[in-house]
């Protein structure tokens, strides 16, 4: 067992507890622990504590856990996508998944489709949008020799712009404040809508995805050497790419559907982790979920406490915290990606 991973796992749990305890309503740490314990074991609390209990268990706990799940998931998907398209600038959203999700969510919001899903209609719309975008990107990128990394990136970027234009059109023709704030939510990302109802399914998909990707790490190593080298080592890069594409799209879709497109994490955490562990995917994919989870939990904490009761957009904090960390590590270690 890897010592670093154990330490990071403990640190992640500590971060989650601290983040649940802190917020605009003041709740003492011993009470926080007692409420969580009561919720988990079905214990008793007094009647005048109901409000504080609800803040802890119904609002903050799912929110913090969602932040951990999404941070871990986006980091891992970022690692996989960068190997998949052989590009250091790739992030989970480069293949158009997030803008597809936004279009889906905004359509549901504006026209009320998917009503049978009840309160999950918007998330459902986002998930469907993500998958439709994925299929579109893959279909358009597909050529005579399968899907090459470069075509995939170019198609993803181009179709993302198309989806964004479609979204702007919807806003233009249905200029309600609800639609506008929905677009803001989907493009900037937020954990404010986290509930116990939506958390388990996203967490499950992300967890299965992380484990599966970790078990594929040697194949990911080999993929980065190109299709010819992969073939000479017995791997069919095209079919590997196809199922990685499906897996990462499902994971990204499941995350975007409940938190919008939280930027920066999926781009930078993979690099930070590689600086710390080296390139081997077996190590990177073991450490990245913890680093991503911790990072996201702390970022969300800062975003909702710094100017409480108002919330800062997540993207602002991820960049403010992440950029200096990234630059410092990069300068100290002569990090290389793509040679020179």
């Amino acid at each position: 067992m890897n010592i670093g991973a154990v330490v990071l796992a403990l640190f992640l749990m500590a971060s989650i507890l601290v983040a649940i305890g802190l917020g605009s309503a003041v709740i003492y740490p011993q009470d926080t622990v007692r409420y969580i314990w009561a919720a988990l074991t079905g214990g008793q609390i007094s009647a005048d504590e109901i409000t504080r209990y609800q803040i802890i268990w119904q609002i903050r706990t799912p929110r913090v856990l969602l932040a951990a799940v999404v941070g871990a998931g986006l980091s891992v998907v970022g690692v996989a996508i960068q190997a998949l398209v052989r590009n250091a600038l790739a992030d989970p959203f480069i293949l158009g998944v997030s803008s597809g999700a936004s279009v889906g969510a905004v359509l549901v919001n504006t026209f009320g489709t998917l009503g049978f899903l009840g309160i999950y209609a918007v998330s459902g719309g986002a998930f469907v949008g993500a998958l439709v975008a994925t299929i579109l990107v893959y279909g358009v990128a597909y050529g005579r020799t399968g899907v090459t990394p470069l075509r995939l990136v170019l198609t993803g970027v181009a179709l993302s712009l198309g989806f964004q234009a479609a979204m702007s059109l919807v806003i233009y023709y249905v200029p309600t404040s609800e639609a506008t704030s929905a677009v803001l939510f989907w493009t900037m990302g937020s954990f404010g809508a986290a509930t116990w109802g939506s958390l388990p399914i996203s967490a499950l998909i992300v967890l299965i995805g992380i484990v599966t990707l970790h078990r594929t790490s040697r194949a990911l190593d080999i993929m980065t050497f190109g299709d010819e080298a992969a073939a000479s080592l017995g791997f069919d890069a095209n079919s590997l790419r196809r199922w990685l594409f499906v897996l990462t799209a499902l994971m990204t879709g499941a995350m975007v559907a409940v938190s919008g497109a939280v930027g920066f994490v999926g781009l930078v955490v993979p690099h930070i982790v590689r600086i710390l562990t080296g390139a081997s995917h077996a190590r990177v994919l073991l450490i990245a979920p913890f680093v991503g989870g911790i990072f996201m939990v702390l970022v969300d904490l800062v975003s909702r406490t710094l100017v409480a009761p108002r919330e800062l957009p997540l993207g602002v904090i991820t960049a403010l915290v992440g950029v200096p960390v990234f630059i410092a590590l990069m300068r100290r270690n002569n990090y290389a990606f793509g040679g020179h």
């Binding site: 190997a83 052989r86 590009n87 250091a88 970790h214 078990r215 594929t216 790490s217 040697r218 194949a219 190593d221 080999i222 980065t224 050497f225 190109g226 010819e228 080298a229 000479s232 080592l233 017995g234 791997f235 590689r274 080296g278 390139a279 081997s280 077996a282 990090y335 290389a336 990606f337 793509g338 040679g339």
Partner: peptide, 29 residues
């Protein structure tokens, strides 16, 4: 096979790259 210009963008160590040669004989990880 030794192919032409088949380097990775990721900075694997020499030992890691040589070990990948065993991939066809190993299952998964």
């Amino acid at each position: 096979a030794l192919t032409q210009e088949a380097t990775s963008d990721l900075d694997f160590t020499v030992a890691e790259i040589v070990a990948l040669g065993r991939a066809p004989h190993l299952r998964g990880n």
